[in-house]
Design a protein around this nucleic acid. Sequence first.
DNA 1: TCCCAGGGATGAC
DNA 2: GTCATCCATGGG
Length: 281
Amino acid sequence: MSTVGVQQGSFLAPDFHLQITIESGQVFGFSKFKEGYQGSFGGISLKLWQKDERLFFESDAHFSPREIELHLKHYFDLERNLSPLYTLLEQDPKIPSVLNRIRGLRLIRQDIWEAMACFILSSNNNIKRIQQIWHRLAKALGRDGKHFPNFEIIADSNEAFLRSLGLGYRAPYLLKSARLVCENVDILKKIDRASYSEAKEILIKFPGVGSKVADCILLYGFHKMEAFPVDVWIERILRKLYFRNRSAKNLLSFAQKKWGLLGGYVQQYLFHGARTGILET
DNA sequence: TCCCAGGGATGAC
DNA sequence: GTCATCCATGGG
């Protein structure tokens, strides 16, 4: 069904916190709009806001409200029952109970290339600057100036131009990775089908993608739930909670053995808790 | 001014 | 295999 004009709608989204989910450092293209957010994914541009357990949307996309609702439920992983995660967090004596303040945080199924590009840009960078670069890239190269540019567009760009947008030393990494994807457009589907370990092996070969960035791409783009990105915040909070602040090697392996397929979610809760000060580090 | 940020590439050893 | 150093940029 194809419909034209502004589409509006709403639906119940229990155990979902829009603000925390968008501001938890996993996605960089949303901007605040009145009491909600403006963003884009899957080629759709839309506005989102939330009142109690109801999520509202407005979009000019050529989709019906029902289709947009299904897109949103998939994007925000709303079909998942979070009870096993909450039980796990509550029953771990090392995890402070204040972490239950961030109930409703969910992992997003981002556009895959966008996640890959953004986390190449994230290395030794901070979230506010990644957001600024996201919007500069969208304005300069993206469709309508408000969507993240696809890999073909970036591959046709050049290093000097990307540096002029503030990418710094990451400019050649993004450019080369975009060109590699262009030369092998099936590679992203291949990674999607592969196991976590096989997928990570492939991703690490891209310039600017190491172990941590690969885990971010696998978690936020490919939704592989055993991925566990270990950045400076996660290292600090894990060392404090489980290693008496002593140095600890191979925290990735530690986390994967401890939490398995819930690791991705545990990581997101610990990251947000640590970065916002809810968990003391 | 200095320090830090969702690290990776490189070279020394 | 591990480890130190360098890399651009802007906010605090």
